[in-house]
């Protein structure tokens, strides 16, 4: 997920996770400062039922340019959401 000053994606995260009963873990993060304002991205591993993970990923994508690899995943599989493209996070 992109971390951009003034962008709403971080505000949308918690309600989406709660609403769909999806858990997450941090996979990667890199947030620095550009001209004194925060900028970067965090990558989360979403854990939950396939449909719920897809719904969260779609919800994040609709908020901003966040993209997610929410392929058909079993309940114990993961989708990885990052800022730069759609990719399968299945493993």
């Amino acid at each position: 997920m992109p971390v951009i000053d003034g962008a709403p994606v971080m505000d949308a995260l918690a309600p989406l996770l709660r609403g769909h009963g999806v858990d997450f873990a941090f996979v990667h993060g890199g947030v620095g400062e550009v001209r004194g304002r925060p900028l970067g991205s965090v990558t989360l591993e979403l854990r939950g039922e396939e449909a719920a993970v897809e719904a969260v990923a779609a919800g994040l994508a609709s908020v901003t340019g966040t993209t997610a690899g929410a392929a058909a995943v079993p309940a114990n599989a993961t989708a990885t959401a990052t800022a730069s493209g759609v990719k399968a996070g299945v493993r």
């Binding site: 990667h28 890199g30 900028l39 990558t43």
Partner: peptide, 8 residues
């Protein structure tokens, strides 16, 4: 310059 996303 940012290196903020992981290598996939």
């Amino acid at each position: 310059a940012l290196h903020s996303a992981p290598c996939t």
